[in-house]
């Protein structure tokens, strides 16, 4: 039994490592594509690795109290926790990690947990820009969370299950079984809500580098920033994997997973390239209009149909 757990843990750590690499590469490649669109040569695609190493090698100067330390750690916890409990590869005993029958709810919790941790940590830094960023971030993420949860609920009701493995299982056997086709309204809702938590335009006013220097992580430097960017890589991929599992039929192999995660990520990138930035009040209003109505509709449709 103990052996089994240790082996599972090792596999979970392995998948964490793979996910981290996917995340960093995804980041680098996206920025490269961005640069190419701008007719620039762009960064080297392995630049995120160098930045990560550099950030860890910088000195840590100042602390603003306990929460300041814990903020990035909470954030990392949310990313790592998601990977730990998410079934990465359907049908693979080892890459199902620690998924259990109610993991979807836990993952939803983890998704929000990091934001809260970051808010506490950034608030402790005493930097006014952080406070502004936190206020904006929490408002926006909360507004995006409502349609997100509604769409997830629709899927839960549809499959009568809270287990991601079962949800993926019910989508097997041809792409027409994917939630995307069996429940298009819920998928549309989730895809709109997805944009809200990706920190990309039009919902990137939280970071707003030109206006409030960089939002919540203004005071974070050195290793703190390293932890944050590590989490950013992990968390993004974890969220993509969750979406792939929920709506796009999961994945039965790593290449399939990477491909699906990549295209899902591109969705936010493409939207971000096309649409300019929303103000917070605008984005909250937007989330409470179209996605919320769509989310409610998806649940009502299930009850009727």
């Amino acid at each position: 039994m103990v052996n089994h757990i240790i082996i599972k843990l090792l596999y979970a750590l392995l998948s964490l490592f793979i996910v981290l690499n996917i995340g960093l590469m995804l980041n680098g490649i996206t920025r490269k594509i961005y640069a190419r669109v701008n007719k620039r040569y762009g960064i080297r695609f392995y630049q995120p690795y160098i930045d990560l190493v550099k950030n860890y090698s910088l000195e840590t100067l100042v602390s603003h109290g306990v929460m300041f330390y814990l903020g990035p750690l909470f954030r990392l916890t949310s990313g790592v926790g998601m990977i730990m409990f998410i079934p990465l590869i359907y049908g693979s005993e080892m890459f199902s990690n620690f998924s259990f029958s109610g993991d979807a709810v836990l993952l939803l919790y983890f998704m929000f947990f990091g934001t809260l941790g970051m808010a506490l940590g950034a608030g402790e830094s005493g930097q006014p820009y952080s406070a502004i960023g936190v206020a904006r971030g929490l408002g926006q993420v909360t507004a995006a969370e409502i349609p997100l949860v509604l769409s997830f609920l629709a899927v839960f009701i549809q499959t009568q299950s809270l287990s991601l493995t079962e949800i993926v299982g019910s989508q097997q056997g041809g792409f027409l079984h994917w939630t995307m086709f069996t429940n298009p309204v819920a998928t549309a809702t989730a895809m709109l809500a997805y944009l809200g938590s990706m920190m990309r335009s039009p919902f990137d006013v939280v970071l707003a580098p030109q206006e409030i220097p960089i939002g919540p992580p203004t005071e974070y430097h050195g290793a703190f920033l390293g932890v944050l960017s590590t989490n950013r890589a992990i968390f993004t991929v974890a969220k993509n994997i969750l979406y792939v599992n929920m709506f796009f039929g999961g994945a039965t192999s790593w290449p399939e997973l990477i491909l699906k995660a990549f295209f899902l990520y591109m969705w936010s990138v493409v939207v971000g390239t096309i649409f300019p930035r929303f103000r917070v009040d605008q984005s909250i209003r937007w989330f409470l209009k179209v996605p919320l109505v769509l989310g409610l509709l998806s649940i009502i449709l299930l009850q009727i149909g």
Binding site: I43, R44, Q47, I50, D51, L61, P209, Q210, P213, I214, P217, T218, E219, Y220, H221, L225
Partner: peptide, 10 residues
């Protein structure tokens, strides 16, 4: 590898 950051801390 030259990038611009908005805050001195980073």
């Amino acid at each position: 590898g030259v990038q611009w950051r908005p805050t001195p801390r980073q």
